[in-house]
Amino acid sequence: MLQAQRTTSSGWASAIGHALAIEGLDIVELFAHAGLDPELLTDPDARIAQDGMTRVWQLAVERSGNPAIGLHMAHVVRPAHFSVVGYSLMSSRSLLEGFNRVVRYQRLIGESADLMLQLEPGQCRIQFAIHGDRLPAAQQSVEAAMAYALAFCRWMTAEPVTPLSATFARPAPSDPAPYAALFQCPIAFDAPSHSLTFSRQLMETPLATANEHLAKLHDRFAGEFLARFESDPVTHQTRQVLCRLLRQGEPKRQAVAAAMNMSTRTLQRRLQEEGVSFQQLLERTRRELALQYLGQPQLTLFEIACMLGFADPSNFFRAFKRWFGLPPGQYREQVLNGDDVDIKE
């Protein structure tokens, strides 16, 4: 069976956009030029093809003339870039525990990312790798991950954390000054891997943001999301595309397949392998979104019908009653009144 393409989370892509803005670049324009839909950047559940992000990095280097542009990621640290993974890291007891969580959930940030922890006497080595699909990953992508990891350590500890060493699996750049300025430690190029090494004492120091209850809660959310993501990757990706396209009307198979860079036949086959048809997934997605939207009182029933891709609101009303056994207006009234809603699945 063919593997689904590697993707990057929209949160991480947005972080890259903030970093590129430091050089005066516009991520929306770069996305469009790279053949990506800029609306993906504002969809928190969207996934973006890794090869598309490689093209964005290539364009960024070409237009800025700065091959070390990935290091700007050290200046845009926000937990939301990692979604639930970032908050899970924040609530960890130590940096070591937090990075173990990042290793566990790294696929939620990007399937192309590969993070590995190596514990050694007195030190901890974090090894980074980014894998491409058809295109080899840009060196800026892995350097961005390293810069962000270091900045996150400094932000979490509120200390000017300095690694014991940093290694790069690439030739020495013509200008190593940006690397020396950021990492402030011995640096080796042409190394076997990209890595940062920290003292064990630093990695095991208790964090002021530690919260065991929140950590367990975030673990549950991240674990549930990861389980769905890993068990049915194409179904998950298709649902995300459907959520994005529904506002434009009922999505056709051809449009969804094109958004996923595959043929209609391939999409149908992969969904079938995961035990669902396109029509079943479309209906399931509409059902789930309908319940979410009806819980938002600022949205009218007409607006919700349009957001679900129904050309005629009456079609939405009939579909909702078929799904749940009561009209959408009655469901909303009961929910907003705090009443128990007896819906028929």
Rank of each mutant, 00 (worst) to 15 (best):
P327H: 09
Q184W: 01
R253A: 06
I22H: 14
Y293M: 00
D340V: 05
V28A: 11
T285W: 12
A258R: 13
F221P: 01
R253W: 02
A68T: 00
M53A: 07
A180Y: 13
L294I: 06
H72I: 03
W57M: 11
G309I: 03
Q58Y: 01
V84R: 06
H236C: 14
L89D: 08
T285S: 10
S165D: 13
E333C: 09
M90C: 15
Q334I: 03
T8P: 04
A19H: 01
E120T: 11
L271P: 02
Y331C: 12
F82T: 00
P79G: 11
V84K: 05
A13N: 06
S88H: 06
G52H: 02
L96S: 04
E23H: 07
L336S: 14
H213P: 03
A21E: 13
P328Q: 10
G338H: 03
R220S: 05
A46F: 03
V161N: 03
Q5C: 05
L20Q: 05
Q3I: 13
A290H: 04
Q184K: 07
G17S: 09
R239H: 04
E250I: 07
L308M: 10
M156Y: 14
L40R: 02
L242K: 04
L246E: 10
S9T: 07
I343N: 13
R247K: 01
I304M: 05
G35W: 02
E143N: 14
P163V: 11
L164E: 15
H72T: 02
A258W: 13
T167D: 10
G98D: 15
Q280F: 12
A166I: 14
L119V: 15
E111L: 04
H33C: 14
Q58E: 01
R47G: 01
A191I: 04
A32Y: 09
E250F: 06
T264W: 10
M146Q: 09
E273S: 09
Q254I: 09
K216A: 08
V61L: 11
R107L: 14
F168C: 13
Q50P: 00
T209Q: 04
A68S: 00
E39T: 14
Q140L: 07
T42P: 14
A255Y: 03
F168Y: 15
A208L: 13
Q248L: 06
P206Y: 08
G65T: 01
S88N: 12
H218Y: 08
G24W: 00
R247F: 00
I109S: 04
N211T: 07
